Simulated assay, not measured.
Amino acid sequence: MNTSHQSFAYTLHDVTCLFRKHFDRRAIRYALTRAQWRALKAIRRREGMSQTELAEFLEMEAIAVGRVIDRLAAAGFVERRADPNDRRCWRLHLTSRAHAVTDDMEVLASELRREALAGVSTADFEAFERVLGKIRSNLSAIESGTEAGAEFTSS
């Protein structure tokens, strides 16, 4: 492996941390934690998911997700509705208040992405996405014990 590739994970981590920091600063007016933001976004994408499904998606313990949902419900952002097919299961739905906030959240995220990508060409960004996709695929293959494919080569 090329020595210039050895620290890419640190750079990727730094970029992720900076993204979170800037997003949190912009979103502070909503007084929601990052876990609450992530839960709202996930529920928005899959309205009606169960708490168990949400916990799996967020890679969090079920009890921690339950606490997040308790707070979101108390604040009027989330409703738990009984599953018509399973009395033990609750389905999660956003309230109109949450839809307004998540709409604002999408605008904040879009603005931050635009600012972060200033000066990055479409071709460079598409190449970046391909490389990240390949890295994710390789890491998933390692986790599942399958062959990852050819090593990364520079052209």
Rank of each mutant, 00 (worst) to 15 (best):
70 D>F: 10
63 I>W: 15
96 S>N: 02
88 R>T: 06
90 W>L: 10
78 V>T: 04
73 A>H: 09
68 V>S: 04
111 E>K: 13
110 S>C: 04
71 R>Q: 12
64 A>K: 12
77 F>V: 07
91 R>H: 07
96 S>D: 00
103 D>Q: 14
64 A>N: 08
83 D>E: 04
93 H>E: 05
89 C>N: 13
102 T>G: 07
67 R>D: 13
121 S>G: 13
72 L>W: 00
53 E>Q: 15
100 A>K: 09
76 G>K: 01
108 L>H: 05
56 E>T: 07
119 G>I: 03
99 H>Q: 15
88 R>G: 02
60 M>E: 08
76 G>M: 04
69 I>F: 05
71 R>D: 11
119 G>S: 04
118 A>T: 13
83 D>G: 06
93 H>Y: 15
70 D>L: 06
66 G>W: 02
104 D>A: 09
123 A>I: 07
82 A>G: 13
63 I>S: 14
72 L>M: 05
114 R>Y: 14
54 L>D: 03
58 L>Q: 02
68 V>D: 05
60 M>W: 05
91 R>G: 02
60 M>A: 08
87 R>E: 09
94 L>M: 09
72 L>F: 01
78 V>M: 01
83 D>T: 01
53 E>I: 07
105 M>F: 11
107 V>L: 12
79 E>V: 11
123 A>S: 02
74 A>G: 00
50 S>V: 04
108 L>F: 10
86 D>Y: 04
62 A>V: 08
108 L>K: 05
68 V>Y: 11
55 A>T: 03
58 L>E: 01
111 E>M: 10
